[in-house]
Amino acid sequence: MRTKREKKLITKYWWFGGAGAMLLGSGLAVLLHGSKLKETNTDPWFWISTGGFALIMTGLGFIGDANRFRTLADVLRELDARAQP
């Protein structure tokens, strides 16, 4: 049985992981769009590509936070199991 604290960490894991995956995929799409704009010599290609790169890095940060929440939940479960006689 999961404790309330562990459920909260698992919920954060799913939210941050899902948001991170969505941002990462969106960033890749925007970055590729900026690359296509560069090929056609369109003016704002640099800023669009920079925005795509920022989305990618933000998504990776969210995925890293999700990993942290999952690790904390696993450590909490292990500590609770050790406390039980």
Score class of each variant (00 low, 15 high):
1 M>I: 09
2 R>D: 15
3 T>E: 12
6 E>V: 10
8 K>H: 05
8 K>S: 09
10 I>K: 13
11 T>R: 14
12 K>S: 14
19 A>G: 01
19 A>M: 05
20 G>T: 00
21 A>N: 01
21 A>L: 09
23 L>E: 06
23 L>M: 07
26 S>E: 06
26 S>T: 14
27 G>E: 07
30 V>W: 08
31 L>C: 03
32 L>G: 08
32 L>F: 15
33 H>D: 10
34 G>A: 09
35 S>G: 15
36 K>W: 09
39 E>T: 04
39 E>K: 04
40 T>K: 11
41 N>K: 13
41 N>T: 03
43 D>W: 02
43 D>P: 03
44 P>R: 00
44 P>W: 00
44 P>F: 01
45 W>H: 13
47 W>R: 08
48 I>N: 05
48 I>T: 14
49 S>W: 01
50 T>L: 15
51 G>V: 03
52 G>W: 08
53 F>T: 14
54 A>F: 13
54 A>K: 09
55 L>Q: 07
56 I>Q: 09
56 I>F: 07
56 I>C: 06
58 T>H: 02
59 G>E: 01
60 L>K: 04
60 L>W: 13
61 G>S: 11
66 A>P: 00
66 A>S: 15
67 N>W: 13
71 T>K: 13
72 L>V: 04
73 A>K: 11
73 A>I: 08
74 D>F: 12
74 D>V: 09
74 D>R: 14
75 V>W: 09
76 L>Y: 11
78 E>G: 03
78 E>D: 06
79 L>A: 13
80 D>P: 03
83 A>M: 12
83 A>Q: 13
